[in-house]
Design a protein around this nucleic acid. Structure first.
Ligand code: FES
Ligand code: FES
Lengths: 172, 172
DNA sequence: CAATCTCCGACCACTTTGGTCTTGCTTCCA
DNA sequence: TGGAAGCAAGACCAAAGTGGTCGGAGATTG
């Protein structure tokens, strides 16, 4: 009867912004690939406006614009203002890892709520949990670092072997 | 100059509640081990009240109580009301994985903000991001599943080989 | 019966997230 | 030489999630 139908209860989730960012990167990577194939001029190869990308994925244009600005500030994208401006990848798609994108948008990710930058938690001393958890954190970082936006453009295919280290060990 | 000193900007973090839950489990595991060593009676072996645990780690007692209740409801803990009551592990420490604890407290964890329960996202169709990301998600799940609360009690030592599969591959 | 302890839901303050709007600036081109 | 198209950078806001508190009800022991 009550509307307590468990709204979502998600956790350890990626923010929607990071999701949008990844989508945009993927889109740009595809465009860059197509432009290169078509042999168009080096300039404006695959550059697309924020509005175009937003429309392609039906995401709020203004929000995407802000995300793209963040990415540009982080050095992952090149922006070009003006009439035929837009955004383009700053590097090759294979050289941009998902980890960089997520960190640029959501900030440094740490799985434990205590580890700040140098492990000095206010609970240090009476909590020995953080050390094993940090290993998990590092593993996730490695995992995300091993995935490039180039790996995202072919969803149906498996990721054969284009990644640096496919295997991640728990003990770092 | 500006006070934009980046308050925390954390992401992909574990909730503090899950952290507390893990700490409590670790504590209970230690107590159970000690009780077993001392050869005390089988009953009340390692059972501790919520207040005791809260004091041991300096965490808000009422909050910890609620977390323990959640854990008990999930079947990870046994609760015993009454004068000398308290909580005890429902299973052996080695049989309780960190993944179970986290899921019991924070709900099902999905790294993408779209995957709900059966992948049908409102953006499905014009977003091919979720498939690679789901692999990451599965890898994290496996990673967490391979860590038991027994692995937490010895932080200094490495985790030698007590886990099911120490190596996690990106392609599941 | 009384003390102790778990159980359960309501409640609150605060932070984060997703999203909009406004204002300004740069580049291109008609 | 203007616009128009596009980025840049804020303030701003509503909704949701998080951390934490409170108070009563029920169980267990002595
Ligand atoms: S919560 Fe900070 S060390 Fe465990
Ligand atoms: S955000 Fe749902 S499929 Fe990409």
């Amino acid at each position: 009867m009550r509307r307590n139908l468990r709204p979502h209860t998600p956790m350890l989730r990626l923010t929607k912004k990071a999701d949008y960012g990844l989508m945009a990167l993927k889109y740009l990577a595809e465009q860059a690939y197509l432009a290169e194939q078509a042999g168009s001029d080096a300039r404006n190869s695959g550059a697309r406006s924020a509005k175009d990308i937003a429309e392609a994925y039906h995401i709020p244009p203004q929000l995407l614009a802000k995300i793209l600005q963040t990415l540009a500030r982080a050095g992952l994208l090149l922006s070009h203002a003006g009439t035929n401006g837009g955004y383009a990848l700053a590097r090759a798609a294979a050289d941009i890892s998902a980890f960089e994108v997520i960190r640029a948008i959501d900030g440094p990710l740490f799985i434990t709520s205590c580890i700040t930058i140098h492990g000095t938690c206010d609970l240090a001393g009476h909590c020995t949990i953080k050390e094993p958890l940090r290993k998990v954190n590092d593993s996730i970082t490695d995992l995300l670092s091993g995935i490039s936006v180039a790996d995202l453009i072919e969803p149906a295919d498996q990721l054969p072997a284009p990644m640096a280290g496919g295997l991640i060990s728990i003990e770092r």
